[in-house]
Design a protein around this nucleic acid. Sequence first.
DNA 1: ACTGGTATCGATACCGGTATCGGTACCATA
DNA 2: TATGGTACCGATACCGGTATCGATACCAGT
Lengths: 336, 336
Amino acid sequence: MILDERIRVTLADVAAEAGVSKMTASRALRGSGDVSNTNTKKVRQAARKIGYVGNHLASSLSGQRSDLIGVAIPSLANIVFADVLAGIAEAIEGSGLQPVFGVTDYDLGKEYEIIRNMLSWKPAGLIVTGLDQSDDAKRLLANANIPVVQIMDLDGTPVDVCVGFSQRAAGEEMAEALLDMGRKRIAYIGCGVDMDVRAKKRLEGFTERLSRAGLKLAATRIGDGPSGITAGRELTSEVLSEHPDLDCIYYSNDDLAAGGAFHCIAAGLAVPGAITLAGFNGLDILESLPVEIVTSRTPRREIGRTAAKLIVEANNDADKHQSQILKYTPVIEFGD
Amino acid sequence: MILDERIRVTLADVAAEAGVSKMTASRALRGSGDVSNTNTKKVRQAARKIGYVGNHLASSLSGQRSDLIGVAIPSLANIVFADVLAGIAEAIEGSGLQPVFGVTDYDLGKEYEIIRNMLSWKPAGLIVTGLDQSDDAKRLLANANIPVVQIMDLDGTPVDVCVGFSQRAAGEEMAEALLDMGRKRIAYIGCGVDMDVRAKKRLEGFTERLSRAGLKLAATRIGDGPSGITAGRELTSEVLSEHPDLDCIYYSNDDLAAGGAFHCIAAGLAVPGAITLAGFNGLDILESLPVEIVTSRTPRREIGRTAAKLIVEANNDADKHQSQILKYTPVIEFGD
DNA sequence: ACTGGTATCGATACCGGTATCGGTACCATA
DNA sequence: TATGGTACCGATACCGGTATCGATACCAGT
């Protein structure tokens, strides 16, 4: 494509075409009062005629604030965050806002850079994952003077708004549910790459609840590779060969648990007859699985939607914005 | 959060602090020559000291081009596009570019608005899904004067660069593979919501190849609801009860196919002994499934990565950019 | 005719950077 | 000493919008 010197159509061109001043053209196109109907019509026609598109850079610079929403998520390999993005996209539909995203790879340094970079766009708001940013990043967020929504976690001190659920409590509740089912010899399987702060918090809650019942994990296995169905299948196979007497495995997420289920099916192990498998997230895949897996359904799409909605509302009426904590609760599902 | 009147730190402040002019400060921070080492150091220190962050709006407005990459995808419910985003995120890592995304919901009108909106950010490049935009949208893209990459499809006329594979050919090749396996009574299952242009193209290629072999689809079933594992299971159940003699089902994607597999497992149908199931995309889930499903593995992550890389490169050296077609080929996998 | 109010409009000054270009200082060379 | 080159620096003019505020026109009321 040859980058020819195309003339740029600016507001001044529209104004000239319509025979009014830049200012009147600006007002007419934004519908911000004080323009006669005649001129409004003339300007609109002129804009359409010469194909005026507008320049967000200029208007945002002038207004000191853009219509961008910054979103920092740790990964896109994890469906959970794709769902969060989907929720965000849904909530901002028609608001004129647009999401910019950055992937942190669970790295606090990258997260800091992403936040810093996003702030220099003077966004209408920021959505970041979790409560555990670096101190530098937290300082940036606190001083940013825009709505900041931290999502997916509640265990900590939010900077501004917080939309999520307690990862600790989710772990505890799952432990409780499994104990209620009479499980005693319980193993934990996670993945190093996926072993983020939140999975750790769940595990803490889980083991704490177990110890209150006088139990400890019968085995713990953290894979090196990335989380996924295949990894779950292999790790389960390994753990079960070392500990054939397990009656339950708690996985850090549903992908791993589904992999575990496939191993059990192949190995002829009845689930949940011989062994109970428990995951986390409530992915669609579990519903159709030929075996029953326990899981905590996380309202991730709702969280994304709510977070974005808060920013949209603050954008429409800045006074309405206030720091708050919106608490969701994952629901335990038994797969039947 | 109280929006207090915080003073904004600008380049002028940095310059004052360092005792130089705005211009020298600007040059020093960007490392764009003609600044003495002493001053460079002074400016850097001053910037750090007063916590200068920079303003992308101002620099982009001045430079007529921003460091944003616009991405238009049809949906985030479909993992495929999350993978594309992941590839994009991967490719722009460290380039200073940031992705803005918009979800079109397979709606040409929304797509046009998204493209228009993105263009008004003067992005460094645009990545849009498919070749079938509205004429208005195509005109915008053609006149945008920036690299435009259309992804995931090849069947049509690209605006600028095109990175993808032929959906028609993918359909044909799957038909060929199934014919080679001796399948004769073949049904197609898709979903209305997911019945986008590309799925249609695959189906066209598929049926055309069948008819070259003197065959037609034994049944076609398009569900009303959204695509997914659950839908696949139900649709398969319905189709098989009406046509118990089928020896093969081709699904518009792997989610549906996996659902079909679960139905067959539950119904005691041997796969691929009694019936062959074929999907599309090559999702991770299939690998661990206790049955073998045929699928075309699409290089969606690579496509995202390549598309973004082209824009990153054009951004570094505009002259290097040229219209081209980068062709990928989905590989058929037999699930074993 | 004079006053006050309302509706409409436009000149001007920004927003916070960067490109440009014309200095200035200093050194080597003739 | 005059001259030319190099390294460095900063005043100025933008980029393309919008906020602000003063100007103008016109009408009703007295």
